[in-house]
Amino acid sequence: MPATKTTSKQKKSAAAAAADSMHLNSGLKSDELLRLYSYMVQMREFEDSILRLYQQGKIVGGAYSGHGNEATAVGSAFALTKDDYLFPMHRDMGAHIVKGQSVLNLMLQHLGRDTSLTRGRDGTGHYSDPKLKIYGNISHLGAMVPVACGAALASKMRNERAVAMTYIGDGGASIGEVHEALCMASVMKLPLILIIENNQFAYSTPTSKQFIVDKLSKRAIGYGIPGITVDGTDVMEVYRVAKEAVARGRKGDGPTIIESVTMRMHGHAAHDNAWYVPKQLFAEWRKKDPIARFETLLMSEGVLSSAKRDSMREGIVDELESAMKTALERPYPGGEEAAKGVFQE
């Protein structure tokens, strides 16, 4: 049944909502809650490392961060199994990690080294790892949505009951390929889940210049599929709606659009200081930081202690430092490698 609803508590002010809107009502066990938390911390620590490497001139291209998107990336991918297909976007490092990607591989990718998954041919999350069923995005946003549709089609043809989950932003949602893919997925009842990361800005363009509908999830009405808007800073809420969408997909009930509302807390990429974002807006959203919110809740509910938090963070940072050291020791690929591999022989 086509439906558009708001599951977040956005009617309250963001600041007030941040303090009291989260509950441990997700049905998740405490070890799962801790994993969600850990993945989000891992994503942020990883991206902070990348930004530091960028500032040191060790990232030769662009560097993107998903600050503010941790709950969306992690909560959505947490609803998948190893058999599902993940088509993440550039602010979804946490989704890669949830799906099983090592921080070493992600580090090698960002650094363009010889043993990276693309052997230096591409950077960032632009890679494919079929073993983990991760198919990274390309820079042309929206272009992977039809491709994810094809994986969902293959899953349906082979009765795999696996879903394909992919992502787009509030800007990328304007791209025609997204519309074509949703038309196809809806009539064919494909197990496709499209997460629209509404993070308020497409590069420097605010949502007011991108669309005039109040919720992007309402676009689902036009396709006759469920569309849900969720508080993208609440990892359990994101997980809950993603899990429902996954269940619909597995049952053969077709695609779902999930609009996850959050804030891009950094510029478009590391070179961009986001001067065009009103400071007040950052201040309001900072109160809803997805990791801090979840951490406060877990501590107040006794799931997480400060000692446990510190040891988790230490483990994450140690792993990262070691991955970074290993990756930085790898050379760039030999120049002559550039000529190889256009076709599979």
């Binding site: 198919y135 039809p146 038309c183």
Partner: peptide, 26 residues
Amino acid sequence: EERIIDTVLGEAAIIGAASGAALVGM
């Protein structure tokens, strides 16, 4: 009709879906 698929009118969707299906073994 499962193997001879009439699609929506949309060449990007058709080519994209073909690429996606090919990537996962079809």
